[in-house]
């Protein structure tokens, strides 16, 4: 069981140094630090193209204190699969020593690199059972290229490729449910979390690293630049995604669904939308139907999750 206190956490090795170039208030570094703080084991990280990669590896500098590889946009999972395979091969041949044997493998990517262009690679690596932890920083759009829509962009949101005008009002499709897609791979551990609930995220990271096979964590990641939100209150805004059940926190451990955070009071979806510039147009009365449709979709998915928890809990008995 994961049991950390602030003192212990403050002593964890610094894998990601200060001086990276992420925007003020960006969620990604917060998520990464929380996740990496739960283990002392050596880490090797494969990073998909995107904001995080660009901002932490800017030649001739690097913010990384651990072995790190960025290859392409859509192949982070396949690259880490290769790293893990080499580790396995060398270990079998007795060519690894000491701490090297305890190395953990992580692949990280944005929603574009995970929900969209890298989904096939992730699915393949998960199915093959490589021992690695995949972390998706879901900021709901292609931020590195200036905020275009992705499979994770919410219904109704403005992006630079789902614009708001006379004929259209932002993205016209509901977001893909990647956490469920990963759960359908029947891998040992799948979780959805948020840096606003840091112990939740760290507990999940701990389980993911200890899982006997592939593990996947989907993390909502605030992007003040494109969400057009305040840089100081990003985690509060993220919390409203959790409390509206737009972004429920749950895990799927060996097929058993568990909701890890029950909002004391489930907030209406407007609480998540109202402080973000990318949803501003939805606040106009003529767009109320978009909010209603989003509310309905959120409720449906939330109910389904509750049912999944009930159903798999019974299986568990």
């Amino acid at each position: 069981m994961f049991n950390a206190n602030l003192k212990k956490l403050s002593q964890c090795p610094t894998r990601l140094e200060a001086g990276h170039r992420l925007c003020p208030g960006c969620g990604i570094s917060v998520i990464m630090r929380q996740i990496m703080s739960v283990t002392d084991n050596p880490l090797v990280i494969s990073n998909a193209t995107g904001c995080f990669e660009i901002c932490t590896g800017a030649y001739p500098y690097t913010a990384w204190n651990v072995p790190w590889i960025h290859s392409l946009f859509g192949n982070a999972a396949s690259v880490i699969a290769g790293v893990e395979a080499m580790h396995k091969s060398l270990e079998k041949q007795g060519k690894l020593s000491g701490d090297q044997k305890k190395t953990l493998f992580m692949a990280v990517g944005g929603d574009g690199g995970t929900y969209d262009i890298g989904l096939q690679a992730l699915s393949g690596a998960a199915e093959r059972g490589h021992k690695f932890v995949y972390v998706c920083f879901d900021n709901e759009g292609y931020m590195n290229t200036g905020y275009q829509r992705s499979g994770a962009t919410p219904y109704g949101a403005f992006t630079t490729t789902s614009q708001v005008g006379e004929a259209h009002t932002g993205k016209e499709q509901f977001r893909k449910d990647l956490t469920m897609i990963m759960a359908a791979h029947n891998i040992p551990y799948v979780a959805q979390s948020s840096p606003s609930n840091h112990f939740d995220l760290m507990k999940k990271a701990d389980k993911a690293f200890k899982a006997d096979g592939p593990a996947f964590i989907n993390c909502l990641s605030v992007c003040p630049t494109s969400w057009k939100t305040d840089t100081q209150t990003g985690l509060k805004i993220t919390q409203t995604a959790v409390d509206t059940c737009f972004w429920p926190l749950y895990e799927v451990e060996n097929g058993v669904f568990k909701i890890t955070y029950m909002p004391k009071e489930k907030l209406p979806i407007i609480a998540w939308l109202e402080n973000q510039g990318r949803f501003k147009h939805l606040l106009k009365p003529e767009n109320q139907h978009i909010i209603d449709a989003l509310q309905k979709e959120v409720d449906t998915r939330w109910q389904k999750l509750i049912k999944l928890e009930e159903a798999t809990a019974e299986d568990d008995k």
């Binding site: 090797v44 494969s46 590889i69 290859s71 392409l72 859509g74 192949n75 999972a77 396949s78 690259v79 880490i80 699969a81 290769g82 790293v83 893990e84 395979a85 080499m86 580790h87 396995k88 091969s89 060398l90 079998k92 041949q93 096939q120 690679a121 699915s123 393949g124 690596a125 199915e127 093959r128």
Partner: peptide, 25 residues
């Protein structure tokens, strides 16, 4: 003694080769 990675595409084949080769073998 080879670790044989039966990838799901050629894009992943070369990508896994990249990860493996950068890992010293």
């Amino acid at each position: 003694k080879t670790e044989f990675v039966t990838v799901e595409s050629e894009h992943s084949a070369m990508s896994a080769c990249i990860g493996a080769s950068a890992s010293g073998g």
